[in-house]
């Protein structure tokens, strides 16, 4: 008998392509991303709107939204196997956790 050494998966495109969003959906996402980038840039011009203490939280919030949109839609994490999300989010959470703590040892957050 013979068989291949690698139990090679068939290409997946046909398996999940049907639940991929349409091009129009992608364009809508991109529009949202563009608008958010515009909003972010607006914060730079303080004369337009005074964000006060909300500046940093809202910037971070918009950043997270953009990050999330790209990761879930453009990178298909929303539609793909959750193992991929776990690998990526694992690295992301570890990175954020470790470096936030590392900066804390420099008393960075107290400045």
């Amino acid at each position: 008998m013979s068989e291949t050494v690698t139990e090679t998966p068939a290409p997946e495109a046909e398996d999940h392509s049907h639940d991929h969003p349409s091009d129009w959906a992608y364009i809508k996402i991109a529009l949202v991303l563009g608008v958010l980038t515009g909003l972010e840039t607006f914060t730079y011009f303080e004369t337009v709107l005074d964000w006060g203490d909300f500046l940093i939280p809202s910037l971070l919030f918009m950043m997270v939204i953009k990050f999330w949109l790209v990761a879930t839609w453009f990178m298909h994490l929303k539609f793909d196997n959750s193992i991929f999300s776990r690998m990526f989010v694992g690295g992301l959470v570890l990175a954020v956790g470790v470096y936030v703590i590392a900066l804390a040892t420099f008393e960075f957050w107290e400045r």
């Binding site: 013979s2 068989e3 291949t4 690698t6 090679t8 998966p9 068939a10 290409p11």
Partner: peptide, 24 residues
């Protein structure tokens, strides 16, 4: 090489760039 893999149609062996379709 001889192989009996079902969908093994990848090998013309020439400049098949990134023939990632059926091999990993």
């Amino acid at each position: 090489a001889d192989h009996g893999h079902g969908d093994g149609h990848h090998g013309d062996g020439d400049d098949d760039h990134d023939d990632g379709g059926d091999t990993d």
